[in-house]
Design a protein around this nucleic acid. Structure first.
Ligand SMILES: [Mn+2]
Ligand SMILES: [Mn+2]
Ligand SMILES: [Mn+2]
Ligand SMILES: [Mn+2]
Lengths: 231, 231
DNA sequence: TTTGTAATTTAGGCTCTGTTAATATTGGAG
DNA sequence: CTCCAATATTAACAGAGCCTAAATTACAAA
């Protein structure tokens, strides 16, 4: 009867660990204990304990004192959570009038409570969107995800035309401020100047509006370079 | 600064206990340990333990060996959960194409994860509905709830015209079967006959369709009596 | 009044997920 | 090569919420 493929039904903690580890892995190859602790706002020894349990469940591989990597099963669950999170953010924004700065916390809780069916109904109602309100790609139902090759505004040379494609969604105050500068996903603008020593970047937005963006914020703004300004 | 009215943020268990106790209280004055255990599908000693914690938190009063009653704070939270549950069921049905037999389980989980804001946005999108898909009244934001005075179909005399107003939503198979008989909230029909010894009731639906309803189901169908049939 | 049964609570134990304090390992600076 | 500081793990503990088995209480029948 039971062929081994049960419904897992992981805990909220497990799901958040897997998602956090997935996101850390996509930056640098493996996830360190302290980085996981930082992201989840948990003490490092708690992470060590949880990592042991998760690797015993076959969701990740742990090399002591080195770091952690998701197994195939771990990555599958992580991507499922990422899909849920991003569909939820998109639904709340498109259908219930939320702003992009207030959806993250709501999705962070709902992602653990929704059924697969509800997520697919939401995705359907939205026309199967490919990006969330912050421009992050939404994994497909079978766990495929686009990995666009974007450059933080902080690293874009002066004199380029760029399109803002994705913004880190973790901090709602930063999101509000970014929006107040006239920056949204899809906006095209030019880099005019940059001060040295991690100084601010001056940009020209549509309508020739000039804005200055600090380096910390510019790290969070992921762009594609679309062309070169003439002299 | 802190005036004593913190955001509580109760656990899923706590919220489900309060809701269950509220619903048991509205049948008979107080809730018994074994009844709570039955509703929540938990062993009675677990209920004793939880009851102790909940009464220490001031959410209910416990008279040992007698039963339990919600305090004002407990009732407030219980009604908030009932509102969440019923708004969610209504939203899923109206906006996402769910049937009335599949919303309960989804709402049972989501009710613990949504924010007040999300619930109010859903309520708004629905036009502040007063009843859920099973006909149960939705408490207002400040915890007021209509208590309509309904009669189970099992107790309606023969020869009456009645309107089906509310159906117990706990079991989805029963809901599907009830719908298959042509019974929905709002349907008006006549009681034609009843067999003794808890036997089935014969009813005449709109279009003169005749159906027979067993006693067990007739207990779950809450009606208002609207008038008397001639002869 | 006694007594049996059902309901309830207490006792003791388990898992999960977190904590802090102490210990161990790693990797780089000197 | 040695030693220090950062990073990670282990040890010991805690609380929520569940369990089963044993003890207690309530209540109604005899
Ligand atoms: Mn997010
Ligand atoms: Mn989460
Ligand atoms: Mn329900
Ligand atoms: Mn629930």
């Amino acid at each position: 009867m039971n062929t081994g493929t049960k419904k897992p039904g992981y805990s909220r903690s497990t799901e958040d660990y897997l998602k956090a580890i997935y996101e850390l892995e996509s930056l640098g190859g493996s996830a360190q204990t302290s980085a996981i602790a930082e992201v989840l706002d948990i003490a490092p020894p708690s992470v060590s304990g949880m990592v042991k349990r998760l690797s015993e469940s076959g969701l990740l591989e742990h090399v002591p004192y080195r770091g952690v990597q998701l197994t195939r099963a771990g990555r599958r669950t992580a991507l499922k959570m990422v899909r849920r999170h991003r569909i939820l953010e998109t639904y709340l924004t498109s259908k219930l009038g939320y702003d992009w700065d207030s959806v993250h916390d709501e999705a962070e809780r709902l992602e653990h409570a929704v059924s697969d069916e509800l997520i697919e109904r939401m995705a359907m109602a939205l026309g199967n969107p490919r990006y969330d309100p912050h421009g992050a790609p939404i994994p497909t139902k079978d766990g495929e995800i686009e990995e666009p090759d974007l450059v933080p505004l902080a690293d874009v040379p002066v004199g380029k035309t760029v399109e803002l494609r994705m913004v880190s969604d973790k901090d709602s105050e930063r999101l509000r401020f970014i929006a107040s500068l006239g920056l949204r996903v899809g906006v095209v603008f030019e880099t005019m100047a940059r001060q040295p020593f991690r100084g601010p970047i001056t940009i020209r937005l549509p309508g020739s509006k000039i804005q200055v963006v600090g380096n910390e914020l510019a790290q969070l703004l992921y762009c594609v370079i679309r062309g070169q300004e003439v002299g």
